[in-house]
Nucleic acid binder design. Structure first.
Lengths: 189, 189
DNA sequence: TCATTAATTGACCAATGGTCAGTAAAAAAT
DNA sequence: ATTTTTTACTGACCATTGGTCAATTAATGA
């Protein structure tokens, strides 16, 4: 009733793998440590051997997955298309990512539970840096930092809204996302 | 140890008055029913005589206060200024309201705790209707429903972001709000 | 073979939202 | 004036939660 055989030892990876589905499905607040542990076949205490607390567990997950957004933005930049298409691709790519990962997005950008918020300040900032420098590179001085900030907040608004209605898939809202991006690009001139 | 003298009876109003300060200060999650009751000098059970649960209590508060936003929009419409100034006033008024009532705004538009979310679907919709019809009245067919929706989401993004940083007052971000509104109005043409 | 370390358990803690039988004041009915 | 009924409130109680920690046992190293 204590340590298990080495080939069935718990690892951070195993925990994250199980926890990911739960968090994606139900959101941070509704997943309990006991729930995760039960699904793994361990006691909930064991989770605290691998992660300091619930926040850190979730942070590990999201932080890892969030690299994807940066990659997405890079991919667009490296595509062989004209500048305007790249700008559009970045704006749309941002929205697509947010809507495909609503729970992650929510935590990254708008949760403020104390135990979590303390952990990541960096990731959202890094993501924004990436976003801003990409647009700056593409558009030069035509767009001011304030315009980039407005663009970001406007995309953010779109994503946040549809994060609250996760029954709608990205495919469902793709048309609206494109309209929104068109609208925003008009303001860039 | 049961009912108190009639002149010191608990009322919904007394509860809301006390709860308002707490909620505004600390946000929904961090306020406990026991905390509210203690401040009032009653047992926490008594709160459940007046409100079905924590969600309903909070809902009463926010729902009441939220009429203010609609009034704000009406006030702008009735001002003796030209159309463009009115449009600007509405967009800016929306932002100002959100940032001056960050906890209310958060609950209305982006919380999705089950006990709450079930209660109010109407208020956010009503507010949006107000917003949309105001813009439609002012701008006629120049602005499509989709543009109005984009405008709304873009304002929403601004508010949501600064709701997460309540250490900044509206005065602090006023300049940025105005830039943001200017940016959005460019997209309306 | 024995001491040390690593991994796991599960009883335990304090806090939470919520329920409810009991109680006493107030109001209504007699 | 007395009894009945209704109303407002209490506080013990419940299940659930995130989290802690001494005890336990497998693995590892000397």
């Amino acid at each position: 009733m204590a340590r298990k055989a080495v080939d069935q030892e718990l690892t951070k990876e195993k925990i994250l793998e199980t926890a990911r589905d739960l968090f994606v499905l139900e959101g941070y607040q509704h997943v309990t440590m006991r729930q995760i542990a039960k699904l793994l076949g361990y006691s909930h205490g064991s989770l605290y051997y691998h992660f300091r607390n619930k926040g850190e567990l979730f942070y590990s997950l999201v932080s890892k997955d969030f690299g994807l957004l940066n990659e997405t933005l890079d991919d667009v930049l490296n595509k062989d298309i004209d500048t305007e298409a790249k700008v559009k691709g970045i704006l749309l790519g941002y929205i697509e990512f947010g809507i495909r990962h609503p729970n992650h997005y929510r935590i990254m950008f708008l949760m403020q539970d104390d135990d979590l918020h303390s952990d990541f300040q960096q990731e959202p900032n890094l993501t924004y840096e990436k976003f801003a420098s990409a647009l700056h590179t593409l558009c030069g001085n035509k767009v001011t930092p304030m315009i980039i900030w407005s663009l970001f907040l406007s995309l953010h608004g779109f994503v946040v809204h549809y994060c609250g209605h996760p029954e709608q898939t990205y495919e469902d809202v793709k048309g609206m996302a494109e309209s929104h991006v068109s609208f925003l690009m008009k303001g860039m001139q």
